[in-house]
C-alpha cells in the first residue's frame, strides 16, 4: 500500500493499481476537506442561519 512496504514494486501493475487508489483517495479526502473548511468559513461569515439558503 505504501512505497516502504516489502510488497511494493515500482512496476506497471503497481503504478496503475496504486495510482487509481491514491487518485480516488485524494479526491475523497480533498473533497471532504474542502467541504468542511468551506462550511467553517461559511459559518463564521454567518451564512446559512435560520435554515434558509
Amino acid at each position: 500500500m505504501f512505497p516502504f512496504s516489502f510488497e511494493w514494486i515500482w512496476d506497471m501493475s503497481h503504478m496503475v493499481f496504486h495510482g487509481g487508489l491514491w487518485y480516488a483517495l485524494s479526491i475523497i479526502g480533498l473533497g471532504m476537506t474542502y467541504c468542511i473548511l468551506k462550511s467553517v468559513v461559511d459559518t463564521v461569515q454567518g451564512k446559512g442561519g435560520d435554515g434558509h439558503h
Binding site: 468542511i36 468551506k38 467553517v40 461559511d42 446559512g48 439558503h53
Partner: peptide, 10 residues
C-alpha cells in the same frame, strides 16, 4: 448552522 452549511457544500 455549521451542519446546514456542510450539507449544502457537500
Amino acid at each position: 448552522r455549521f451542519f446546514h452549511n456542510l450539507s449544502h457544500n457537500m
